[in-house]
Design a protein around this nucleic acid. Structure first.
Length: 427
RNA sequence: GCCCGGAUAGUGUAGUGGCAACAUAUGGGACUGUGGAUCCUCUGUCUCGGGUUCGAAUCCCGGUCCGGGCCCCA
């Protein structure tokens, strides 16, 4: 027997119904925010992801040489492909560009709960503005889209990499700052992201950070309100713009209907190196280790791909995790079946069954009938099994009077209806 | 990539060295101008490869897949 590759999944009928429903819920919100759908290929040149994805993602790439000897990778995420698309084709479009996408992504990683080698991301990219209002709208979009799925227990966290970086620099003596710069993104950010405070301290010490500076920085990482943060930068003129923007963004966020109480967290860093400025995450606390549902922020990727510099921001939602969380919250997926089943009581009328099923299908109804020559009771049993809402029964007695029987499968009630009035009865 | 635990019919399980089984589902049938019930019945299973043994679903080694954790990330 051939089985599916490790870390991939088959989705049965019930699962697909749920997934499509949730996908549509989120797309509804994207559309209301005037985002439009785009799609990019599943395959990209390996180079696209090598350019600036961060070495950890490179390690996990599914890549291979194609028959023409090209280095090809299955996309591990969708931001870089969308930016590649923009640079290649869309740079002259009217700004801002608001795109959403839904697609499968691949990472060669150890599968475990909430993590697969093929997984689905749904996300948005905003090209043309990173104003505080634009970022606020983007965060609001992510928040409302996830809320729209029916999830109850989610947590929004917002940080700012510019302020974080400025504060790190303040923690290092100016004499060793130039030595330190290369380690900033790769090492310190990563340790902060991992919440590995001890290693972070070691690293700061290595660059001659004083105990006092370290203590101050650790306090900064814990700060969660805008006034405290403003205080840290009161004698730094260059940070004032960042502070002001951050405040404006939070204010707008309230206007977009997103509660901003306790959302600030200065210890949010990012695995992907191209993020700058505001970053945010939405997590489902009940999920444990793999609890992050959404990550996003502003980033600089276009110039690296050869395009003209332009503000860009976006987010990606881990679709599979949203589904997992909904299941965990015992979310009741709406079940609606409009299926109509057609059957006959006399074999003579079998041809009429096909004609009627076809007619109803032309009219737009979802219609099924027996393909296995079932006996009458079996046929009704089957109609029940497949969830038919109504069964149309063709019997000789009624047929001779141009009538059919409609049976409501829930109540069991049935009534005779004239053939020409049938469709009106089914609506 | 590392550590730990699993894998018996489509699904859920029992069997722990001696005939591979139960429930349920699927297909067929009984009933026959009416379904969710009942009864009968066919089909279908030890994750794969090696080893130990007279004999392996059972013990040992390895692979594959699944689950949990680490790393990392969505």
């Amino acid at each position: 027997m051939v089985s599916k590759p490790r870390g991939t999944r088959d989705f049965d009928v019930a699962e697909m119904e749920k997934r499509r429903f949730i996908q549509k819920q989120m797309e509804t919100i994207f559309k209301r925010f005037a985002y439009k759908e785009i799609a990019t290929p599943t395959l990209e040149h390996l180079e696209l992801f090598e350019i600036k994805s961060g070495e950890n993602i490179i390690d996990e790439l599914y890549s291979f040489k194609d028959k023409g000897g090209r280095d090809i990778a299955l996309r591990p995420e969708l931001t870089a492909p969308v930016m590649r698309f923009y640079v290649e084709k869309l740079q002259m479009e009217t700004k801002p560009l608001k795109f959403y996408y839904f697609g499968n992504c691949f990472r060669y990683d150890r599968p475990q709960e909430g993590r697969y080698r093929e997984f689905w991301q749904m996300g948005c990219e905003l090209i043309g503005s990173c104003s505080p209002g634009a970022i606020a709208e983007l965060i609001a979009l992510a928040y409302h889209a996830i809320k729209k799925t029916g999830l109850i227990n989610i947590r929004l966290r917002i940080g700012n990499l510019n302020l974080l970086e400025k504060q790190i620099r303040k923690a290092i003596p100016s004499s060793s700052l130039s030595d330190f710069s290369p380690a900033l993104h790769t090492d310190i950010f990563r340790l902060i992201d991992k919440n590995d405070i001890e290693s972070m301290e070691q690293l700061l010490k290595k660059y001659k950070s004083s105990p006092k500076q370290i203590a101050l920085f650790k306090e900064f990482l814990q700060s969660n309100n805008i006034d405290d943060i403003t205080n840290y930068f009161k004698d730094s003129t260059e940070a004032q713009t960042d502070i002001e923007d951050f405040k404006k963004m939070l204010d707008s966020l309230e206007l977009f209907g997103v509660p901003t109480r306790d959302v600030i967290e200065m210890n949010i860093a990012r695995g992907l190196d191209y993020y700058t400025g505001t970053v945010f995450e939405i997590e489902a606390p009940q999920l444990g280790a793999e609890k992050q549902l959404c990550g996003g922020g502003s980033y600089t990727l276009v110039p690296l791909l050869g395009g003209t510099e332009i503000p860009t921001a976006g987010f990606a939602i881990g679709f599979d995790r949203v589904m997992m969380t909904l299941e965990r919250e015992n979310y009741e997926f709406p079940f609606s079946s409009e299926l109509i089943y057609v059957m006959s009581l006399d074999r003579d009328l079998d041809r009429e069954v096909i004609k009627m099923a076809s007619q109803l299908r032309y009219s737009g109804f979802m219609v099924d009938f027996d393909l296995m020559n079932r006996a009458i009771s079996r046929s009704l049993k089957y109609a029940n099994k497949i969830g038919a809402k109504k069964t149309i029964i063709l019997g000789k007695n009624e047929w001779d009077q141009d009538k059919v029987v409609i049976k409501d499968m829930q109540s069991g009630e049935q009534q005779e209806v004239k053939k020409e009035e049938l469709e009106a009865f089914l609506v």
